[in-house]
Amino acid sequence: QEELVKAFKALLKEEKFSSQGEIVAALQEQGFDNINQSKVSRMLTKFGAVRTRNAKMEMVYCLPAELGV
């Protein structure tokens, strides 16, 4: 569980995922086979993730800066 949270936060820091499906796929690539869209959705809510525009003006998920991840 701890490893999943770390990987999840690291992915969001990249600010390149525009959908929950993309986050699920990226986590599965890292070996988290039991991850699915509903789990990702709950984690996004739990950590207060928001959708914002990145440098390329794409809408992407990211974590609020005050979490200091």
Rank of each mutant, 00 (worst) to 15 (best):
E2P: 10
V5E: 15
V5S: 09
K6I: 13
K9Q: 09
K9N: 05
A10E: 12
A10W: 08
A10I: 08
A10H: 09
L11G: 01
L12P: 00
L12N: 00
L12I: 07
K13S: 09
K13Q: 10
K13W: 08
E14C: 13
E15F: 06
K16M: 08
K16P: 06
F17E: 01
F17M: 12
F17H: 06
S19H: 11
S19D: 08
S19K: 08
Q20C: 06
Q20H: 09
G21I: 12
G21T: 12
E22R: 06
I23R: 00
I23S: 00
I23P: 00
I23Q: 00
V24C: 06
A25I: 12
A25Y: 10
A26R: 07
A26W: 08
Q28M: 13
Q28P: 00
E29P: 01
E29C: 06
E29A: 12
Q30Y: 08
Q30E: 06
G31N: 04
N34H: 14
I35N: 00
I35V: 13
N36V: 06
N36S: 11
N36Y: 06
N36F: 04
N36T: 12
Q37N: 12
S38I: 10
K39A: 13
K39N: 09
S41E: 15
R42D: 14
R42L: 14
M43C: 02
L44Y: 01
L44M: 06
L44Q: 01
T45I: 15
T45M: 10
T45A: 11
T45Y: 08
K46W: 10
F47A: 07
F47H: 09
G48R: 07
G48T: 02
A49I: 05
R51S: 05
T52D: 06
T52V: 14
T52N: 08
R53S: 10
N54Y: 03
N54H: 02
N54P: 03
A55W: 05
A55G: 09
K56A: 12
M57P: 02
M57D: 15
E58I: 08
M59H: 06
M59V: 09
M59I: 09
V60C: 02
V60S: 02
C62Q: 08
L63I: 08
P64L: 04
P64I: 05
P64A: 05
P64K: 05
A65R: 09
A65E: 14
A65P: 15
E66F: 08
E66K: 05
E66N: 09
L67K: 14
L67Y: 04
L67R: 08
L67C: 08
L67M: 11
L67S: 15
G68W: 05
V69H: 12
V69D: 15
V69A: 13
